[in-house]
Design a binder for these strands. Structure first.
Lengths: 204, 204
DNA sequence: CCACTTACTATACGGAGTCCAGAAATTACT
DNA sequence: AGTAATTTCTGGACTCCGTATAGTAAGTGG
């Protein structure tokens, strides 16, 4: 998945092509009613090749989200380095807003906006939540270092989980708002600020 | 799974027996290295019967937690009815503390305490996220009704996700603290209170 | 002794995900 | 040109999860 090497056989497909093919089929037959075989076939590659582009079927749903979340560690470093006077919760909040701000608002994960018609079900929603949980250890480590807490301390974990939860919920609501939703940044900012306000006093 | 009826063939096993068998195997061979067949065999039942006790393999990990979480809807109603002057975030916080308080502290989900040696990896986050999402829809609905928000409004979602995240993180830290951890209630209470404090002003 | 109810078993099936050996397509070197 | 090196694609086999079903076992109550 690293940006195609300059040598070797060129790629025949792309993650976007596969995701587009999948989206059509999901809308038509639902998520469970669509097999990886069908997706690969519509995209013109073999089933085995599909797994060169996606680790699993559920990853198709979160292509856009994953791309944005990948910038979170960088945003944390950025905020942490630029303004060391901020409390740890405020730093995380700002980093989350930064990620939201840099997200291309035209890219709305159709797992959320079209989740109903695709008949996704709770397990697929959970796969989206798992994305945020995956970031949790990174954020918690950042907070722990910032507050000089010991690893395994509860407080950094709580700060991280609460803020990630708030940001995630705001993003979901944003995606589901349909046409006329504002920017993702405007949705995430008040959510994380409110939560960070409550956590802020505990600077230790 | 309803408490065994007084008529009909008696049960040959129980969720606890199966979970115990699984726990041994997971510690020995890891989660992915253990098949449902092996678990059922060690517990002395057929593979098909296993699925009469658990909907899926991952549910084995959360037996203790699921039992406590089942009381959350009731706790929400309880708090909501007893003290209608409380803000919605505070009500949720109190309900979460109530659930923690009623949890038997000797029952620590080994998915959390032993997650490392069982080599759970992504399976842990996925199944954990599923629990989170399931409770989230319940809590968000409660908050929405309490604040007279429209369904799909962002705020109830944010309140729910932030508080559940905080409570979850606190519970995980508690479980991982090993022998000498205090009560679950004492771990959850400060976490949710802090978050609710920040969300409280927004009573609408 | 016979219904009735509930739980267990055997079996088969489809689909996800993994693995591997080999073929195809391109670049780089001689 | 020809060959080597590299990367991607492909087909097939395999394991396992989860579901469905039809039939059997083991109790309770008339």
């Amino acid at each position: 998945m690293t940006p195609s090497a300059r040598t070797g056989r060129p790629r025949r497909s792309s993650a976007e092509i596969l995701a587009d093919a999948a989206s059509e089929l999901f809308l038509e037959n639902g998520y469970a009613g669509t097999t990886v075989d069908q997706i690969a076939q519509r995209a013109g590659v073999s089933r085995a090749t599909f797994f060169n582009y996606f680790a699993g079927k559920a990853d198709l749903l979160w292509l856009d989200l994953d791309e944005s979340l990948r910038s979170l560690p960088g945003a944390l470093l950025e905020v942490g380095g630029s303004d060391p006077s901020l409390s740890a919760p405020d730093s995380v909040a700002r980093a989350l807003v930064l990620v939201a701000q840099r997200h291309d608002d035209s890219r709305v994960p159709w797992a959320l906006s079209q989740g109903e018609t695709m008949r996704l079900g709770d397990d697929l929603t959970a796969s989206g939540a798992a994305r945020f949980v995956a970031q949790h250890s990174i954020v918690a480590a950042f907070v722990a270092e910032r507050t000089e807490a010991r690893a395994g301390d509860a407080w950094p974990q709580v700060v991280s989980a609460a803020l990630l939860g708030a940001a995630g919920a705001a993003a979901v609501a944003w995606a589901r708002a349909g046409i006329g939703r504002g920017s993702l940044e405007d949705a995430v900012e008040p959510a994380v600020e409110a939560v960070a306000a409550g956590l802020g006093g505990h600077t230790l």
